[in-house]
Write a protein that binds this DNA or RNA. Structure first.
Length: 246
DNA sequence: GCCCAGGCTTAAA
DNA sequence: TTTAAGCATGGG
């Protein structure tokens, strides 16, 4: 699709003009109590927080993941050593508000154990691994699939790996440029071919997709009137009901 | 009460 | 290789 390029770039410009910069990923400031959108992590503990948050928000609203993170940080458990030592069952209690708490506790322990076994006390060297290598390692872990791996690479380490999520699939299906249930890898490649490989751009693009999917292009009843993508979307003028898609 | 949310694993066809 | 079920809390 040689036309992907223009559409994908136009969508970005329109979303950015409408919503403005999103300053992802939310992290807890030093001494703070709650994650805030302030342009992403600036130190190792915030990078770790992003990784944990990426697992916690799987198929769950950020609000639930945020509460789970607040529980951990208010108990001083949101650091590498604490997460390494805490029993899985106890971790589960802290992160309950994020849902799937048993699975997610296991996933977080799996990630932390891996870092510990591979790097020991110098676990933060993980962040310096080359992108492709890091991605392979992450995908080999229990409970880390393509989206979580890409989120970690992009938002925790600040390197360019485009993140696809359910909002991306829904929005671009509705726009009429991708099939329903397009495989993750395929859609990711289309974005990465259409855009310069800049982490800042990937970061902002995904964040804009999320806010658009959350606030306007919602699952049940998209609010098409006044949509910033009205001129691009093939569904403009189509009545509700046949609007299709979840 | 129902649907949805910043997915992933496992088992079955 | 594709499809479905299971995981679970919280907000609209």
């Amino acid at each position: 699709m040689g036309n992907d390029r223009k559409i994908i770039r136009d969508v970005y410009e329109s979303l950015l003009a409408c919503y403005g910069p999103q300053s992802w990923w939310p992290v807890t400031p030093p001494g703070g109590r709650s994650p805030v959108y302030s342009g992403g992590p600036t130190n190792v503990s915030q990078r770790l927080e992003v990784m944990i948050g990426a697992v916690l928000t799987q198929n769950t609203s950020w609000n639930g993941a945020r509460k789970a993170l607040e529980n951990l940080s208010s108990q001083n458990r949101l650091d590498f050593q604490s997460l390494l030592e805490i029993p899985e069952e106890k971790l589960g209690l802290f992160i309950r508000p994020s849902g799937y708490f048993n699975q997610k506790a296991r996933r977080i322990k799996s990630l932390i154990s891996f870092l510990n076994e591979r790097y020991g006390a110098d676990w933060e060297r993980f962040f310096a691994e080359p992108v492709s290598r890091m991605r392979r390692m992450l995908l080999g872990l229990y409970g880390i699939g393509p989206e979580t791996a890409d989120s970690i690479i992009l938002y925790a380490t600040g390197r360019a790996s485009f993140v696809i999520d359910s909002y991306t699939k829904r929005i671009f299906y509705r726009l009429g440029i991708t099939p329903r249930d397009i495989p993750y890898k395929e859609l990711k490649q289309r974005f990465e071919k259409a855009l310069p490989a800049e982490s800042k751009l990937y970061n902002e693009y995904h964040a804009l997709v999320v806010i658009h999917g959350k606030e306007r292009c919602t699952a049940r009843e998209p609010e098409c009137e006044g949509c910033p993508l009205e001129q691009i979307c093939v569904r403009r003028g189509i009545s509700r009901g046949e609007s299709g898609l979840r």
